[in-house]
């Protein structure tokens, strides 16, 4: 049984069981009770910005970081005040002289880092809030309003070697897989080299020079921009366009960046499902049968 099926079968109550619950009378009573509550309604606010405020703060801080890093050098940094404020708000911890192998999911209030001593790996995560109850094999504690967790066979040893570091040292510990803002354009261009751009391709959509990116995530964004364009052509086009889209998507499947990403994640598998679907009957079989048209944007991050 697949993981997805296993998870679904563990659902304590299915949708049909939910729908069959004889609660209509009580729910209607609750609904009317809520309606009877007085309310001072505010005017409808304007549409929300796409980027949450917290994300915008990080983005602007990192943009400032870029501006203060001519040449993208890792030495002689003068961090922007906004970035310092964001970085100062999180627990900046390193494990002894262990190397950081992965660092991502940074948001205001959360983040993760993997550390290795060459033989063993531990994962440190932090999020604003109370720690979860202690679980087997996971060290959890609270520090300065953050819930921290250490996972991995050497977590106890790593915990003993945790040290708080400066903003400068913490940011300098980022692994090489994090594409620095100044290198972003060059890396994106290299990733695009063995793919043909679809009609209407907008290179500026891949302008990520404002923030450091994990190389895998950057690759996913580049492949998505190209693949989504070809799939859109397939969805909207006739027989000729559909054939062209499949040929071009096969090239994307053979691209160097996707081969590199295949060692770390599953993006290539998802893209493969869609290319096969386009060459076949236009449906993708996962947990349920989906048409390419209704699902490709969510699946591929278009």
């Amino acid at each position: 049984m697949s993981l997805d099926d296993t998870l679904r079968r563990a659902d304590p109550i299915t949708d049909s069981e939910l729908a069959a619950l004889p609660l209509d009378t009580f729910e209607a009573e609750l609904r009317e009770s809520i309606l009877a509550r007085p309310v001072r309604r505010r005017p409808t606010p304007p549409r929300r910005r796409l980027i949450p405020l917290a994300g915008a703060l990080v983005a602007s801080a990192l943009t400032a970081f870029l501006l203060l890093l001519p040449g993208g050098g890792r030495d002689d940094r003068a961090w922007a005040a906004e970035l310092v404020r964001v970085a100062e708000s999180v627990p900046r911890l390193l494990v002894g002289d262990w190397k950081v192998t992965r660092a991502d999911q940074f948001d205001v209030g959360m983040g993760e880092m993997d550390f290795t001593d060459g033989a063993r790996t531990v994962q440190l995560s932090w999020r604003k809030g109370d720690p979860q109850p202690q679980k087997d094999g996971i060290l959890a504690w609270e520090q300065d309003g953050y819930a921290l967790e250490l996972r991995g066979e050497a977590s106890a040893e790593a915990r003993a070697e945790l040290r708080s570091v400066s903003v400068d040292e913490w940011l300098a510990a980022m692994p090489a897989s994090v594409v620095q803002p100044s290198e972003s354009d060059k890396v994106v261009d290299a990733m695009l080299e063995d793919m043909n751009p679809p009609p209407g391709f907008d290179r500026t959509a891949l302008d990520f020079s404002g923030a450091p990116r994990d190389r895998y995530q950057l690759g996913a964004a580049v492949v998505a921009e190209v693949a989504c364009g070809w799939i859109k052509l397939w969805v909207e086009g006739g027989e000729k366009e559909r054939a062209e889209a499949v040929v071009e998507l096969r090239k994307v499947q053979q691209s160097a960046v996707l081969a590199e990403m295949a060692k770390q994640g599953h993006y290539h598998e998802v893209l493969g499902q869609y290319v096969d679907a386009l060459a076949g009957d236009g449906t993708v079989v996962g947990g349920k049968v989906l048409s390419v048209e209704e699902s490709y944007k969510d699946a591929l991050g278009c």
Binding site: L3, T6, H266, G286, S295, L300
Partner: peptide
Amino acid sequence: GWEGDPATVRSIAQETVA
């Protein structure tokens, strides 16, 4: 001790991408 075969796990297109 789960007996499902991880190697045969299929991605759900809507869930798995990165």
